[in-house]
Amino acid sequence: MKVLIATEKPFAAVAVDGMRKVIEEAGAELVLLEKYTSKQELLDAVATAEALIIRSDKVDAEVLAAAPALKVVVRAGAGYDNVDLEAATARGVCVQNTPGQNSNAVAELVFGLAVMMSRNMFNGTSGTELKDKTLGIQAFGQVGRNVARIARGFEMNVSALDPYCPDNVMEDAGVAPVHSVEELYRLNKVVSIHIPATPETRKSIGYDLIAAMPKGGLLINTARKEVIDEEGLIRALDERADLKYAADVAPERAVEIKERFGDRVFFTPKKMGAQTSEANINAGIAAARQVISFLTTGEERFRVNK
């Protein structure tokens, strides 16, 4: 069994050590491709791999076609829109993610952004506190549940929208269920986005939703840039000088938006949600374990393609 770890942005050394231990103790061979600078390097490396572990690296139809022995791809993290699921299914390749491993790291970033934006990026002017403010969570998965947990410490009033999560699960977490996206944005001064980028969600958050937020509204996006309608975002920010937007991933028009709205917007220089040593280790080792389980027993609990 040959397992390829291919990462433009490498795992931490301690994570690689843990992954190596899991893989080699199972009798598999580990091949490491880090900081590669061309797609051809990935195409060459994957040629004989039976399993592939990635982070934000793109696995498209060309990569899959170059890997005739490939059986499983594990994306170390929750999001998996960097993998062509249809092409993987067509080639009989199982695609998995590692949900929950990065969730606390992302949730803590939400509150780092929330505090910074509420305090006007610490520019010396008077800001606001999070205590007693309303927080709406868009999608109540692992990250959303951690956001709710941390929000309790800030004494915020929390509601959430997730058509796939039963109301009682939210209520047990001290969260009020909301049943329409319009209501979520209209009722909450802070909204935290945790939806995946799918054909249904791309550009789904635009002017009407953002402009409906209460006075002093703050929209935080640690999900995907594709879910935002940038034209609508710009229009809302332009019309409402009280609105703010902070994101873990820069929009396509980041330079223009920053120039126009200054301290009312903030974007991390690269996606930072999972960029903690703990999340790096957790997701990497989980990916290694899932690869070995699939290759040895066929376990596919975290499969995301059909």
Rank of each mutant, 00 (worst) to 15 (best):
K270D: 12
T296H: 15
D162S: 11
E108V: 10
A114H: 03
P214S: 10
K189W: 08
E226C: 02
D17R: 13
E50R: 13
I53M: 06
E182V: 07
P68K: 06
P163R: 08
Q40G: 01
P99R: 07
D60Y: 12
A49D: 05
D81I: 02
A236K: 05
L219R: 07
K270P: 00
I205A: 12
I210V: 11
F111V: 01
Q142S: 13
G124P: 04
P10H: 08
E29N: 14
A105H: 06
N104I: 11
A287G: 11
P163V: 03
V31W: 00
R289I: 14
A148H: 06
A286P: 06
I53G: 02
T201N: 00
V291M: 12
Q290V: 13
A13Q: 13
E86K: 11
D238R: 15
D60Q: 10
T98Q: 08
K189P: 01
L70K: 05
E231H: 02
F261D: 12
R186P: 02
A66C: 02
R202P: 01
R240F: 07
Q138I: 10
N188Y: 07
V190W: 02
N82H: 01
F267P: 10
G27D: 12
V178N: 00
L187N: 12
G77Q: 01
R149S: 11
D172P: 01
N168F: 15
E226Y: 05
A78Q: 03
K35L: 08
D17C: 13
T7Q: 07
V63A: 04
L85E: 06
I193F: 04
R20G: 10
A247S: 15
L52K: 03
E34P: 01
L130T: 02
K21S: 14
R303V: 14
T297V: 13
L209F: 12
K71W: 13
E108D: 07
N305M: 14
T7C: 08
K203A: 09
M121A: 10
V249Q: 09
A26L: 10
E259K: 15
Y80V: 04
Y207G: 05
E299W: 07
T201E: 02
T134L: 14
T297M: 14
G100P: 02
A105F: 09
V14E: 15
A173Y: 11
E171I: 15
I150D: 03
E239A: 13
A76G: 04
G298L: 15
I234T: 13
E278V: 14
F11V: 05
S204A: 12
V3T: 08
V265H: 09
A105Y: 08
D167W: 09
N82S: 06
V255Q: 10
K271C: 11
E256N: 07
M272A: 15
A67R: 02
T7S: 07
A12S: 14
T201G: 03
A148F: 04
E171A: 14
A223K: 01
